[in-house]
Design a protein around this nucleic acid. Structure first.
Lengths: 241, 241
DNA sequence: CGGCCGCTTGATGAGTGTCAAGCGCCGTGG
DNA sequence: CCACGGCGCTTGACACTCATCAAGCGGCCG
C-alpha cells in the first residue's frame, strides 16, 4: 500500500453511503437512514484504478463485493483454450463479485475500461449485518436475482440477428446512462469494437459495419468512441420485445 | 383441490426433508439435523403434475420457490413477438423460481416435460427462517449465485460451433444423471429435439443432423429419445475447456 | 513526430437456418 | 385389437448471414 493510500484512508476511515449519489442504485435502496449508516461502517475505503487494471482476478478467492462508483468495468471469463468471453459491462451503482458467490473463487476477471473508483464490501460482514438487517439479505438476494435476469436477456439477445443485438446494446446503454443522470443521447463508448463484438457474439468487423450502417440510416452519429443517438425509437424498433 | 389431495395432505401434513434422498443436492446441504427440521416445517405438501402442465406461469406473482423431487422441467421465457426461449432444464434436487427473485413476478414459465413431483417453499417464510438460521440465507444466496454461473456457461457455449454445443449438452446431462445416481451412459431425453435446439440456439434440423453424425462417429447410440453414450471422452473432447 | 493499435471497408467462404418432403412412432378412437 | 391421424424426427437442397482473411486508414499515446 502506497503512502498516499495510507494517508487517504486515515483521513477517510469510512466511506459515507449516506452522501453517495448512487445510493438508490446501489445497496442502500430501501434501507432506513440508520441501516444505511450500519452498512456504511463496513464499507472499506474506496479505491481508484486506471484503465486496464484488474479489480479482481479470475481464480482469486472471493473476499469482497465491489460497488462501482465511477467508470466502467468489463467482466471477463476465460475458457480452457484461453478464449475470452465478456460476460457483462458494469456501470456506476452496480455491484461486482456475483461470479464468486457460488464457489470460493471468482470465475471472472473484472477489468477497468477507464479510470474507475469503487467501494469494497466484505461478504462475511455483509452476511453478519444481514442478521441484524433482514432487509439487507433480501436486497442482496434480489440483486443476485437481477444477475439471473441479465442472463435471460442475454439468451434472448443471442438468438437475434446481428443488427438487432447491436441496436439493443446501444439502447440499453442509453437507458443506463439516463438513469444515472447522464445524457441518454450522447455518450462515450468506453469499450472497443472488439469488446462489443465479444459481448454480443459478433466479429469486430461486423460491429464496425453495423455501426456504419446505422449511421447511414440516420439512427446514430458516430465519431470514434463518441455516439449520438438521433433516433432512439428507430433503434428500439430493431429490438426484441 | 381434489379430495385425493386433501386426503393426502392430511396424512402427510409436512414433507420430511430429513428422509428426502435429494437432501445433499437441495437446500439441506450443510445444515444441521435440527436446522433441516425447521426448514422441513415450512415446506408445503409436495405435489404432482403431468407432462405439459405449468408449475408456474410467466407474469404470475412470485410466491414460492419449488424444489423438484422427480421429473424434468423446462424454464421458458417469451419475448414481445411471442418467440419462446428455453432458459434452462431443471432436474431433481434443483430449485425453481429464481426468475421471480429480482422483481415481484416470475419472468419465465416452468413447464413439466414429464410427470413431476415437487415441494413448495414460501420465500417469506424462508426469509424469516433465514434470520434464525444464517446458514440458510447463505445457501440461498449461493444457489442464486450458481444460476449466475449457469448463465456464464451459456455465454461460453453460445459462442461455440453447433457440434460442440450439442456435445457439451449431452455431457452435462450425463454428469447430472450420474450425480443423481442414475446411469450416466444410458438415459432418456425428456425434451424434444426442438427443445434442445431452442436451448442451444440451433434449428431442430441441425440437432437431428448432429445426433446422426455423432452416432455415425460411434460416440453415441440413439433410438428415439433413448441415448446411450458410447464414448464420453470422445464427447468431452468436443467441449470447450 | 512516429509507431502501433484499433477501426473501417471489401471479397470470399463456411456454417447453419430455412424450406420441403417423407418416414415412423405413439396415442387415440372405433 | 387394429387402423388412422398427427406430430416429431430425419434427410436433402438451397440460401443467407456473418466470420474470416486482407489491406489501408487514422487517431492516440509515448
Amino acid at each position: 500500500m502506497s503512502f498516499k493510500q495510507l494517508f487517504s484512508s486515515k483521513r477517510r476511515p469510512q466511506v459515507s453511503c449516506e452522501s453517495c449519489s448512487l445510493g438508490r442504485l446501489c445497496i442502500p435502496q430501501g434501507l432506513s437512514e440508520h441501516e444505511v449508516e450500519l452498512v456504511s461502517r463496513i464499507v472499506k475505503t474506496h479505491r481508484t484504478l486506471s484503465k486496464g487494471d484488474h479489480l479482481y482476478h479470475s481464480g482469486e478467492w472471493f473476499h469482497r463485493f465491489l460497488a462501482l462508483k465511477s467508470g466502467t468495468v468489463k467482466l471477463v471469463t476465460v475458457d480452457g483454450s484461453g478464449n475470452e468471453y465478456i460476460v457483462d459491462f458494469v456501470m456506476p451503482g452496480e455491484l461486482l463479485g456475483f461470479d464468486g458467490l457460488s464457489g470460493e473463487r471468482y470465475t471472472c476477471s473484472a477489468i477497468a475500461l477507464e479510470t474507475v473508483s469503487y467501494c469494497e464490501l466484505p461478504p462475511h460482514q455483509l452476511e453478519r449485518l444481514g442478521r441484524e438487517i433482514p432487509k439487507l439479505s433480501q436486497i442482496l438476494l434480489q440483486l443476485s436475482g437481477s444477475q439471473f435476469q441479465l442472463g435471460i436477456q442475454r439468451v434472448i439477445l443471442s438468438r437475434r440477428q446481428a443488427d438487432e443485438r447491436l441496436a439493443a446494446f446501444l439502447a440499453h446503454l442509453s437507458e443506463r446512462y439516463r438513469t444515472r443522470g447522464f445524457s441518454p443521447t450522447e455518450f462515450r463508448l468506453s469499450m472497443t469494437r472488439q469488446d462489443i463484438g465479444n459481448y454480443l457474439g459478433l466479429a469486430p468487423e461486423t460491429v464496425s459495419r453495423l455501426v456504419s450502417q446505422f449511421e447511414a440510416a440516420g439512427l446514430i452519429q458516430v465519431q470514434g468512441k463518441m455516439v449520438r443517438i438521433l433516433d432512439l425509437d428507430g433503434l428500439l424498433r430493431f429490438c426484441p420485445q
